[in-house]
Amino acid sequence: MIQHTPSTKRFTAENDWLVSNFSFSFGPYYDPDNTNFGPLRVLNDDIIQPGKGFGIHPHREAEIVSIVLKGQLKHEDSLNNVGILQFGDIQRMTAGTGVLHSEFNPTSDEETHILQLWFMPNEKQLTPSYEDISFDPKKLTNQLLPIVSTNGGDHVARIHQDLTMYLSKVDAGKEIQFEQQVGRKIYLFVIEGSFTINEEVTLNERDDARITELHEITLQAKQDSFILLIDLPGGEE
């Protein structure tokens, strides 16, 4: 089954320094039928104005992944990690028993565009930790490049959940295939472009698809496309 959610169905929260589009219940937006897809609980698509950001705040019991699409993101946390991320960098933070952090756009003249995803951890009360990795953007072309996985690896962040996140830039007219194991699910998010899934469903920019009970999908790009695919546990929802 493919459940398609157009970008226009997302909840938008906006103030003078932030525009945030929520794919799942978050903050003031609460829909009991849209709180998660398997362990995926949050996908926020944020635009942060120059010099602005999220001040010190706590998190717990979440695996948080940030993907910088444009501009820069400065991170500081109570584990003494400080870093500036840009496109090609991925940040994974295990909040576990509790971590304090801040996230800012450190520039004076450029917006920061990020995707931030939260997953339920596979274990409670984990020791908080932080990791950032870099991938080679050239390796995104017409293939699924793993960026986060259970076991991690070279240029792949390690997450405390049974999942793999992939990014891919697919040229118009090209196809990529993904085979899924029985009992697992797939989450797809279109960062840019437009493509079809199994010639059935067309996804456009910032749409998502929540896929269950399909063991093979073919993504055909109608335009040059940039996609996020997440292989997730569980197939019942």
Partner: peptide
Amino acid sequence: MLYVRHTVGSRL
């Protein structure tokens, strides 16, 4: 002041 919030997104 005391605030009780949700862990996901700080819903009050």
